[in-house]
Design a protein around this nucleic acid. Structure first.
Length: 250
DNA sequence: AAGGCCCCCAACCGCGATTGT
DNA sequence: AACAATCGCGGTTGGGGGCCT
């Protein structure tokens, strides 16, 4: 099969594979525009690159996906979406094409049916709509009234917002560990709200539909916290110290 | 046995990003 | 700075093979 420019298309032959392998072994990867000429192949550069990256490269793991790998794909896809090359980069020996094909043939349907179930569940549990608010990281000085307001366990804590004492968000810490003390947890100078925000980001899905909007198990104890947030149009949310999207790009 | 259907996966295509001139 | 060449990615296609009727 040839295209209009006379280049071969379609399945690769054993001989073509050998020519390309010999070429890569001699010249190394890269400079794909030179590969067809160097290998003596009547193929376009893209075809050569793809054949090497997805099939001929000896580092490729051609065994079926293990449970761990499938679990990793599910988690990474939840986090990254269809960014197959990034996902494959976390799975040694797997190519983006392998991961994409596996997702489309094995996992997409599974995820779709799970999502349907989740949606039904959420609709049943709560008919009220939730406004999505992007968390804004804050940095407080050590003598900030916000940090001094760290609550005793199981108590509500009103953290002031701005200069207006009438505006606050309520943090309700629930000690999920076995700490018997009712004293204030030893958290050093950590900025509690932002630390919990970042952790809550990763745990958000598990909490959808419940009143708990975040959790923090990375601290000394396992805490859950409820937050009464200001209105979305409150000036509090306009104090952009940095863009949270940057974190998502990491 | 054979025809139709479906699944899987290798390969192609289009396009945005990056690099070179 | 502008343009061309190249790279790399994600979406899509098409063919082979297995399964079902």
């Amino acid at each position: 099969m040839e295209n209009t420019s006379g280049l071969r298309k379609g399945a690769w032959t054993y001989e073509e594979d050998n020519l390309l392998k010999a070429c890569i072994n001699k010249y190394g990867e890269g400079k794909w525009h030179l590969a067809p000429q160097r290998a003596g192949l009547n193929r376009c550069r893209k075809s050569c690159r793809l054949r090497w990256l997805n099939y001929l490269n000896p580092t490729i793991n051609r065994e079926s996906f293990s449970e761990d790998e499938v679990d990793m794909i599910l988690r990474l896809h939840k986090l990254l979406g269809n960014r197959w090359s990034l996902i494959a980069g976390r799975l040694p020996g797997r190519t983006a094409n392998d991961v994409k094909n596996y997702w489309q043939t094995h996992l997409r349907k599974k995820m779709a049916s799970n999502k349907e179930k989740d949606t039904e569940k959420i609709l049943k549990e709560s008919m009220k709509t939730h406004q999505v608010i992007k968390p804004q990281p804050r940095t407080f000085s050590s003598h900030s009234p916000r940090l001094n307001a760290i609550p005793a366990l199981n108590n509500d804590c009103k953290v002031p917002i701005g200069n207006d004492d009438s505006k606050h968000m309520v943090l309700n810490y629930q000690n999920g560990g076995n700490c018997a003390s009712s004293s204030q947890p030893s958290l050093g100078n950590a900025s509690i709200p932002s630390a919990m925000w970042s952790h809550s980001l990763w745990n958000l899905e598990e909490q959808v539909g419940s009143e708990t909007v975040g959790s923090c198990s990375s601290l000394q104890e396992d805490f859950n916290f409820n937050m009464e947030l200001p209105n979305a149009d409150d000036s509090f949310w306009n104090l952009n110290i940095c863009d949270f999207d940057i974190l998502l790009d990491l």
